[in-house]
Design a binder for these strands. Structure first.
Lengths: 472, 472
DNA sequence: AAATTTGTCTATTTACATTTC
DNA sequence: GGAAATGTAAATAGACAAATT
């Protein structure tokens, strides 16, 4: 029996004791999931301390711990010793691609489209692959890890980004998301913890949640993640890995400085973390800062998708891995994909070796430059580097504005954007942002129209006082 | 302290107490893994009872339970209440594709190659897709779940195998292995149990092991899995799913009879299992028995790869799923693949709609018939159905012959085959077999040569007395 | 058929580390 | 800077069920 009456304690979550069935921990997990899914428990809500809840429900402390842990691995809640347990932002947020609508009624600036103007070049390359004498052999099971020609092309492409590696340490995956899946499933196990930026790539977040891998948020500044913060967390938290996007990190648009990369590399080595370096936007980086993987190749998997740089539809990504992970990675590839289509890999390889790839990248850089200039015309007070060609921008929202609210408001006004809640790795409330995909509108006119709408919304002082009810 | 001295007990595994470090369960897990990997603990070895080991190591019973459970989920050991814990067969067996050698020194009858003679037809179809006005759009991110045309083609293809479903219930995956990954990751969680035949598809086994999903072996006869055996296990074992290959099951070559399918469907419904029906060889089945999914669509995912029937290299599989799993499956596709290449899906769709697919299938059926006849000439006492066009056969080995030994022996004599240990889901010792891939030799002459070698090995009475040492 | 062996599962105890005040 | 609050994690205890003898 509970020792005290809790009637006078304002507990944020009061599941009914009589709703519990055996096993208790499963029952508690389900009640919590339901109440979060139903929106009864809003994002950032602080749950009662485990001991208090245990006392209230008259169960053992570790029964609550167990139930909370399951929800935490699913990404529904996040907890810090000493602080408490909180409902994750974005826990209740539907996946965007899942309920995909065609962008007829609104301007797409949420999803990032990587410019499709260059796709006619790809068709020519497919034709030349088809004309190759070896074309028929590309349709077989052989060379599950890629042909020598394909791996050499991959090597050449990676070297372009200062990542030099042997062809025996390269995998060809069916896109970056697939490479991430292979990496996570091969090198990590459920319950493992991976450090990330406080705002990180939502696809990686969702994948980690799906695989019961816990993300731990590490503070950062304008040069990227803070090495000291990482070191501190690692000392106490049994972190197995770290996920970083070194160039134009999605969604914050931060490029990690060379000095910072070196410092982070030291901490990673010190704590024997596995680095997952996702460098999808390397091709947009004019300075070509060396990747972290180059400094610590033995601790790192470097993933370089060609979806943004060359062709989204062919689903080809390259990844470099060290000898020590080879057998596990190869086994992972085999178990998840069996293999990546040789035909698709050959087309990408041909693009790289024929020089068509350079043309595509240059064209995309020009398009990105043009759109950056348009953006700066409308948001002249927004500080961005002159050579920042990123496909998206990260706009701070007015204080106290709920990100989710702004997202819905924009949609009503005809622009699709993503708010920072979608990218937030469990952490207490802070400044909210919106990610604006400059590359996605079909043309400059549409881009300008979208930017004007966003600007007017941000400048309207009355907006932050509006309530959801008005627009939903 | 241990209560008794164990010096006189013959324990099969005696880890040294002083090698244990904290945490104990992790330490015990590692010792067990090492000793299995090193071959110190041979397949089928009975480990000491958990209580005995706990007493011996002076740790708590459930510390052993926890350590054993981790190894069991990895597929290293298997346990039955009342019986004991045993080392899995094939636990120490390297993945075949992983250490791939070119088949120069031997005849390939291990790996199943699905006839490449039809691939020139595919090249023509790729050409016609390339000439389509919509070709450029196939290189975009759009239609992550497939275009309407592709889904209609998939629907048509599935209908060919008597699986009728709405286009909203079809997914396009990057091959069967990828479809299985999506299904497992979306609908199951680590620790879940899935029922399988006693011998099952090794790719599925490996994937389940990788994902910490436990396979539970169910007895069967020549018509397939026994419904009563399934029912009994389900009553007590908290089974979440069942994996079946209804036609020409890999590796046993069993086709589940219609009557048996109905009975199994009843048990599946009764215990609310999720059926994963892998029908990759449906196209070889002349009788076209209705799939189980058709009887219980709400409980089932039906996977139909085109790798064996149409083209291995393009990596396209179709799968049908019910409404109740739609959101989870779509989210899984998005998290694992983002999408399957639209270009590849379009080629397969074009094959199906143009009628080229029928030509390919017919050609493959002719090739399979020819090889079956060759096989029957050499193994006339082996009973197979006249219309069994399966790409492989399942040969019983002489009593007491170690399958692993036979595999190595055959390799030395120039033929690559797979022994039943590779396919065995944890279970006590029994009759051993070899799987002989008839479709893989490059031509009939090579097939005959391979079959002759196998036959002579099986008829040599002295062989079973040989020891590993002679050939390794 | 009853007793024993053996694995399974969940709740409990205990020690500990960090954050907050 | 020390005490209290709070989450983490491993080892332990006990009830239970299947297989064996």
């Amino acid at each position: 029996m509970p020792v005290n009456s809790f009637e006078h304690y304002p507990m944020s979550w009061k599941p009914e004791r009589n709703q519990l069935t055996n096993p208790l921990y499963v029952s508690i997990t389900k009640l919590l999931e339901q109440d979060i899914a139903a929106g009864i428990l809003a994002p950032h809500t602080k749950l009662p301390p485990q001991r208090e809840l245990a006392d209230f429900l008259d169960v053992n402390l570790s029964t609550i711990t167990r139930a909370f842990k399951i929800c935490e691995l699913k990404g529904l809640i996040y907890a810090t010793t000493g602080k408490g347990t909180f409902v994750s932002p974005g826990a209740n947020m539907p996946n965007v691609f899942t309920n995909h609508e065609s962008a007829i009624d609104f301007i797409e600036m949420g999803v990032i489209k990587p410019f499709y103007q260059t796709n006619s070049i790809i068709l020519n390359t497919i034709q030349s692959v088809l004309n190759k004498p070896c074309a028929e052999r590309l349709l077989e099971y052989s060379n599950p890890l890629g042909t020598p020609f394909q791996k050499q092309a991959a090597q050449k492409w990676l070297a372009r980004f200062q990542l030099n590696t042997s062809i025996d340490n390269i995998m060809i995956a069916s896109g970056a998301q697939n490479a991430l899946t292979i990496t996570l499933i091969s090198l990590f196990k459920p319950g493992d913890k991976i450090a990330t930026d406080t705002f990180t790539h939502p696809n990686f977040m969702n994948l980690a949640n799906l695989m019961d891998i816990q993300l731990v948020s590490i503070a950062g500044d304008e040069c990227g993640m803070l090495p000291d913060a990482l070191d501190t967390i690692c000392k106490t938290n049994n972190i197995s890995g770290i996920y970083l996007m070194p160039n134009f990190s999605n969604p914050t648009n931060i490029t990690i400085s060379l000095a910072r990369r070196k410092e982070l590399a030291d901490v990673i080595t010190k704590h024997k973390l596995i680095l997952i370096e996702d460098d999808v936007y390397a091709f947009l980086q004019p300075q070509k800062i060396a990747p972290i993987t180059g400094m610590i190749p033995e601790n790192s998997v470097y993933i370089c998708s060609t979806s943004k740089s060359l062709c989204a539809g062919l689903r080809v990504a390259f990844a470099a891995f060290p000898d020590c992970y080879r057998s596990r990675i190869i086994s992972g590839i085999y178990n998840i994909n069996l293999k990546t289509s040789s035909f698709n890999a050959e087309v990408i390889a041909e693009l790289i070796c024929s020089g068509a790839a350079e043309k595509i990248v240059n064209k995309k850089i020009d398009l990105a430059k043009e759109r950056k200039d348009v953006f700066l015309r409308h948001f002249s007070n927004h500080e961005i580097n002159a050579d920042n060609l990123c496909f998206f921008q990260w706009l701070p929202l007015p204080k106290h504005m709920d990100g989710n609210f702004f997202e819905k408001l924009s949609k009503v006004h005809g622009v699709h954007v993503f708010c920072s809640d979608r990218f937030a790795v469990g952490n207490t409330k802070r400044q909210t942002y919106a990610r604006i995909a400059l590359s996605s509108p079909t043309d400059i006119a549409e881009l300008e129209k979208g930017l004007k709408i966003i600007k007017s919304l941000l400048e309207n002082k009355d907006i932050s006082t509006l309530k959801y009810e008005f627009i939903v």
